[in-house]
Amino acid sequence: MTDPALVLTDVTYSWPGRGGFSLSCPDFRMAAGESVLLLGASGSGKSTLLSLVCGIVTAISGSVSVDGTDLSTLRAGARDRFRAERIGVIFQQFNLLPYARVVDNILLPLRFAPMRRSRAAPGDAARLCIALGLPGDILTTQAGRLSVGQQQRVAVARALIGAPPLIVADEPTSALDAATQDTFLSLLFDQTARTGSSLLMVSHDERLGARFDRVVRIEDIVTSWKAAA
């Protein structure tokens, strides 16, 4: 894994028809296995940056490389598959399909990622749940019945299954109380260290910074503006 986990070079992007929100990111990179906290207030372009990293949208110019692959060289379908194969995603909340069992939620990305599926061993979902401090019988529970804290841990298990090289987390702790936040982060770091995945977490909470290899303020790497209407 000599390839850097993430490289953004001279990236520009503007949303079609969303008040003309545009952003440029001249240079940002993450080494393999590195953990980075990206600090920024809402409206600073965090969501757009994550969309670019995940290949949901493509840069107008410049390149976004994840794990050595330039996303702009991939077609839409291939980008979706690439995301499933290489990136584990954790949202702020409402991460899970509430009607599905926990085990189905955890295994869902593997459904779209054959290579990642072949890396995952049969007992991985259960092992991850236990490692994340979830009760052993949780796999067959309906996801909608879990507490918010449990749901976030299940989301971590889902992001880590099959050991994708990059984990992207969008304010995963903001729905948790302070005590739970701490435990949650410890577990998240333990598991990303185990799989050797890089971790890109977005937050507005500076106090979280101590645990990360590096803390980056979004305004230091990204310029964003609203085009005059």
Binding site: R81, E85, F94, F112
Partner: peptide
Amino acid sequence: REMAIWRAMGAR
């Protein structure tokens, strides 16, 4: 929201 989850997991 559900659709967004599917998309994030790699669903086209």
